[in-house]
Design a protein around this nucleic acid. Structure first.
Lengths: 223, 223
DNA sequence: CGGGGCCTTGAGAGTGATCAAGTATCGTGG
DNA sequence: CCACGATACTTGATCACTCTCAAGGCCCCG
């Protein structure tokens, strides 16, 4: 990983200048499978991920699931709309978050710097979701999987000897639900990339990108 | 896809306290086909739609298009991420917008009430896009089309005599690109709903919803 | 060593895409 | 006001990508 960010993200507590009552930011740790919040929970906080990997998802009545986003260190997750959350957020790799009181973003009384940081994270989120919409609506299975690998390896891949090594912290089912595919199609597509010599595997949870150019062209589109 | 640059986001830290310069909001009118902005344009403004209908979309090199959103009166469109827009926005029905200077949202020097309004619009946008992701990733053609009609008629439909009349200000191609389908599939699906007695048409641009319950169940799931 | 997830692979089916006409609808100019 | 052409929409036939169902293999952990 672009080992990361705990440093780049100085918690809000550190910066009270003239403000008498800075919203206290609390730290919280979660083990694998623990929920940061569930659909229907009151949305009191916004979370800044300091470590671990989180999965934000929505589920239909009949069980169909869409993964909205994967939260990595540095990401901010849980933007409120209305009083309750409309999605589930679960740790898929043990980690920790800093909880910011919702009104830090919602109102203007509080820590301005944190307000700004949360706001800009929301704008980045909108932009990322636009990419995601394009991917879900208009890309083929191969393009989806390749795009996913490109994006993930840009975030958490490590380059060494012409080879980018990238952990896949999420299961095939999670990837499938993120890309709007089935597990089988994800698996078959990864196999296709492997047999074409574009990628290789290390125990199914780690992908080695052998030919970044080929992967980029499989991802199509302006990257 | 593009990379989102957090570096592009360093907000103006040196905030003058006096606020001598409240941002002027300007009005602008657009006829059909006129662009509010295009991909690559400098993102100086955020727009509040007062009339007309706008289409926000992204296009891949090979011409594949994804409609991100339709902007109706009351909607706010053009949230910036980075210095330039990453999507196109075009009037598909003549209308007008109020332009808000970007820094009204970006910074905290300016009109607080407007800042709040834009911010909350951004949060609503995130929530709406989550619905859209679920629709694109996990719904069938019939569910997509039915969901679309339900959502649109909730926004701009008028109820009369057990019948909801709803204009379709956008073309079939726009609907298709919004739902991640082809024109033909949209058309066939609408025909199927019509033959089932769920909807009827008035010149292809106006749909009459005859059986809202049936439409809702075709849309499946809570939308 | 055995059990249970998770992942991969295979065969067949189905939904939606593609290719191709055919039909309305709308705007324009005679 | 009507004729014409252009554009948009509908319908049909066929194809292909992805899903579904099913089985087998791998790996982790007790």
């Amino acid at each position: 990983m672009y080992v990361t960010l705990s440093s780049a993200f100085t918690p809000a507590i550190a910066a009270p200048v003239g403000i008498p009552n800075p919203a206290p930011a609390q730290r919280r740790t979660l083990s694998v499978g623990a929920h940061l919040f569930r659909e229907g929970d009151i949305a009191n906080n916004i979370y800044e991920i300091t470590s671990g990997v989180f999965r934000l998802s929505r589920v239909l009545d009949d069980g169909r699931r869409q993964v909205i986003a994967f939260g990595l260190p540095g990401d901010i997750i849980g933007f409120p709309n209305g009083t309750v959350h409309h999605s589930d957020c679960e740790a898929i790799q043990a980690g920790a978050v800093i909880s910011h009181r919702r009104h830090t973003l919602d109102t203007l009384k509080g820590d301005d710097a944190t307000h700004q940081r949360l706001l800009h994270a929301a704008l980045r989120e909108i932009s990322a979701m636009q990419d995601h919409l394009m991917m879900l609506g208009r890309k083929s299975a191969m393009e989806k999987v390749a795009s996913f690998l490109v994006t993930l390896s840009d975030r958490i891949g490590t380059c060494r000897d012409e080879l980018t090594r990238c952990a896949l912290p999420m299961s095939r089912a999670d990837i499938a639900d993120f890309l709007g595919l089935t597990i089988e199609t994800v698996s078959r597509t990864l196999t296709r990339l492997r047999k074409a010599g574009v990628i290789a595997f290390d125990r199914a949870q780690t992908v080695l990108i052998k030919d970044k150019d080929a992967l980029l062209s499989a991802a199509q589109a302006r990257v």
